[in-house]
């Protein structure tokens, strides 16, 4: 399905952001990418949908080499790759429904997009996804009127609207409180299984990676230093990824103490 070979990204002189990175993903479920800030996690995801141009290496999605695609061919691949952002990146002034339907922009004509006349099956799918993430009662609410957790649920629905072959989630919970984070990770895992879509998710929270992913990839200084199941994430492995001295203690979530966090879901 997704096959990355010797992917390298060099922004400027100095250490490459990503160096000869290899990864193959074949089954649905969550694959967590963990590593300290600046390890190359965001660069990796952004190379896959070409928001960032890779310097060298190859990325194949269903056998199609995508690092050299241009114009319409690039857009055709992009519409099959869903993306979820740390800062949600919803269109603030548009309604929840418009935001979800914007996931279909790669499929509909300009005229349909302008007049908001999306095909009936798109509207049905949008309603289904909004029900699935519990926001069907908010269809005509403006996106900027929602809480952080609600916005990210719209972000998840928008990504799934694309009928994606794979979903990239770049720190989807970093702007959320612990309880909402768990809720979003739960939605991602469930929907990934329901639609049989692999999800590649950057996390800086090791506990969330342990709990929700079936596979963990550790990045350090742009290189892969770990690839295995979450059970194999021992203290020694974490030291290899984060370094002994500067492991961020706040990156580790204590689930027991997080229940008091406000839910943020309005009436």
């Amino acid at each position: 399905m997704l096959k990355i070979t010797k992917l390298t990204k060099i922004y400027g002189p100095g250490r490459p952001a990503l160096y000869e990175f290899d990864l193959a993903i074949d089954e649905p479920g969550l694959t967590a990418i963990i590593g300290p800030s600046g390890a190359g996690k965001s660069t990796l995801l952004r190379c896959i949908n070409r928001l960032v141009e890779p310097t060298s290496g190859s990325i194949e999605l269903d056998g199609v080499e995508i690092t050299k695609l241009k114009g319409a061919a690039l857009r055709d691949v992009r519409r099959r790759i869903g993306m979820i952002f740390q800062s949600f990146n919803l269109i603030d002034r548009l309604t929840v429904m418009e935001n979800v339907l914007s996931g279909r922009l790669g499929y509909v004509s300009f005229w349909q997009a302008l007049t908001r006349r999306f095909p009936q099956e798109d509207i049905d799918r949008a309603y289904y996804l909004l029900e699935r993430v519990g926001l069907a009662h908010y269809v005509n609410k403006r996106a900027d009127a929602l809480s952080g957790g609600e916005r990210q649920r719209v972000g998840v629905a928008r990504a799934l609207m694309q009928d994606p072959k794979i979903i990239l989630a770049d720190e989807p919970t970093a702007s959320l409180d612990p309880k909402t984070s768990i809720q979003i990770m739960g939605f991602l895992k469930e929907l990934s299984e329901e639609f049989s879509i692999p999800v590649l998710v950057n996390l800086h929270n090791v506990e969330l990676a342990r709990r929700y992913s079936r596979r963990v990839v550790g990045l350090q200084g742009g290189r892969k230093v770990f690839d295995g199941n979450p059970g194999a994430l021992t203290e020694d492995v974490l030291d290899a990824i984060y370094g002994t001295a500067d492991r961020d203690p706040e990156g580790v979530l204590t689930l027991e103490s997080s229940t008091a966090a406000p839910s943020g879901v309005a009436g």
Partner: peptide, 23 residues
């Protein structure tokens, strides 16, 4: 960010301007 989100859906230039810029 909003612009990138629309580009990521595979929208072309005109549709990106329509959804990612005008609102």
């Amino acid at each position: 960010g909003q612009l990138e989100a629309i580009v990521s859906t595979g929208a072309g230039f005109a549709k990106t301007v329509l959804y990612g810029v005008f609102p």
